[in-house]
Amino acid sequence: MKRGKSLTFKQTLFAWSAVIPCFIVICIFVLSPIIQTFYGSFFNWNALTGKMTFNGFDNYSNAFKDPLLGKTLLNTFYLTFFAVLIKTILAFFVAMAVSSVKKVQGLYRSIFFLPTICTMIATAYVFRFLLQPEAGTINGYLAALGISGPGWLLDPNWAMPTVILFTIWKDFGYVFLIFLAGVQGISKDVVEAAMIDGATGFKKVRYVILPLLRPITVYNVVTQVIGLLQIFISIVGLTGDSSNASTGGPMYSTTTTGLYIYQQAFISYKLGYASAIAVILFVIIMVFTLLQIKFGDRKGDF
């Protein structure tokens, strides 16, 4: 491997002077809280008084015995799996379709991206009213068509699928735009060469476009998984009430691990326990991310 020309002292000094301020900011606002979270997970931690009593692995053993934490993890995986799967497939095909449109492509991009730039909590509240089973607009329209609408967010069986639908609607635009950029970045020469070799229709997509989009697909999946495994703001907006009694309900069917961490930390004020769950979730995300990269990067082109 050819080594680059070494930097002069002046250049090195300039480089460090550019990096150090950012490094300090990252240390204070990113690394320090991370380290404190990990450290705090071994303590019974009262954030208000600052009193920390060492309790070893008690928070972790309590977490593994907590049936509600298990439920929240299952909810989180369920939501993440279906939301990522549906969003990715849908965004890919819509991107393919839009890329083939010559006119008003900008309009499509704007329309699909619009929900992404709307405030999460505000859209969640609006959806909650639209989806109210007995007074909501959606079931009103369904009733006009002779269809009895489901209980949406108030039905334990429908609540999480409804959250998944909302998540897809809300974040679809971002995934779509990344795919669209990827599709448009594929060299026409490659596609035409493949078509001359007889790859048309499905074969063109399967053997030419999809492999070329693998890095983008992996990026899309990894960033979505990381985001969805931490989801909680939209759940609060969709299910919360003035007393917070229904938040994450009904029957904890929409309580995700991110929401559970928030509730333990800022409603029950068990910061040590919340830190332990955050560390557990971090490890899970780390493992999932590594697996996704390993299996999505077989040709080393990520």
Partner: peptide
């Protein structure tokens, strides 16, 4: 190095979010 990037991003996003709430 690239393979380390995504886990690091995950780490930053997860605990950074949690820590931000505690400020």
């Amino acid at each position: 190095m690239k393979k380390l990037l995504a886990p690091l991003l995950a780490c930053v996003l997860l605990i950074g979010t949690f820590a931000a709430c505690s400020n």
